[in-house]
Design a protein around this nucleic acid. Structure first.
Lengths: 139, 139
DNA sequence: ATCCTACAATGGACAATGTCTAAGTCAAAT
DNA sequence: ATTTGACTTAGACATTGTCCATTGTAGGAT
């Protein structure tokens, strides 16, 4: 079932009904929910869960490195539980659908030191944009 | 002076004091201001300019393709006037400083068709993250 | 130079997203 | 079973962005 829950338990994370529900909602592939969507789905399973708890829990999961924040949407942050395997994103410019993708090569190596301005570069995030098959068909 | 203003005039964009001020604030290299920062600086030059106008104007500049929205920060959108030359971004994870960078290679070519899920991919946005020299020195 | 009119600007209410706090509740160690 | 510190709650608050009815104005026409 839940790789995510397993890992969290293994790390001694204090388990509560609320945290379990949030982790369950996030578990899976190609999952990229906003905080509000996480909250809605969590409420469906546990009506008395509060918004603050969802935000707190998401923040902790990010700190733990179990979930990534992605800013593909210009509106709200999205949360991607697939943090253990590096990947990038392909976003539909029209409907906002998101897929995880694995490009060839290593973009980090493509940034020459002359373009690093003295930064210690540790990470790179690639967002591809285009039109998904659905939206293309609708047009 | 202002390449941006020149281009806008050339495109028959109706010029007003407010629009000129917004364009002036945005003009330059390595400029990545939030809407609110644009507003503050615009107010310094033209105290009666309203927030709505700044948002409207930024939106139009984006539609015209003269300015790009970038979502490096998880909080607010930032506006990058350097739209005529393609480039990517290097962001300090600590203080949020942003530099324009030009990596080698073409990331678009690195996404094999098997990883495109039927999308028509038209654009790619690369964000490098690291620690800037200032923050490294402070640590 | 003056007048018109379509387009732009205003400000203030509203909406969406995220943060904080004080008080109550509970998981887990003992 | 008790205890304790961490977790949760509800709602106020903060920030960022949008909308709309009204007022103002740039730039072409005369």
């Amino acid at each position: 079932m839940s790789d995510l829950l397993e890992r969290l338990r293994g790390r001694g994370w204090r388990m509560t009904a609320q945290r379990r529900v949030v982790a369950e909602v996030l578990d899976g592939e190609h999952v990229h929910l906003t905080a509000d969507e996480v909250h809605s789905r969590a409420v469906a399973k546990l009506p008395e869960i509060s918004r603050a708890t969802v935000y707190n829990t998401l923040g902790e999961l990010v700190s733990l490195g179990e979930v990534l924040e992605v800013a593909t949407d210009k509106r709200a942050k999205r949360y991607d539980p697939n943090a253990h395997r590096p990947h990038h994103h392909l976003v539909c410019a029209q409907c906002g659908a998101i897929r995880d993708v694995h490009p060839n090569g290593n973009p980090l190596a493509d940034l020459p030191s002359s373009e690093r301005f003295g930064f210690t570069v540790s990470d790179v995030e690639v967002t591809y944009r285009g039109i998904c098959p659905n939206c293309a068909a609708a047009a």
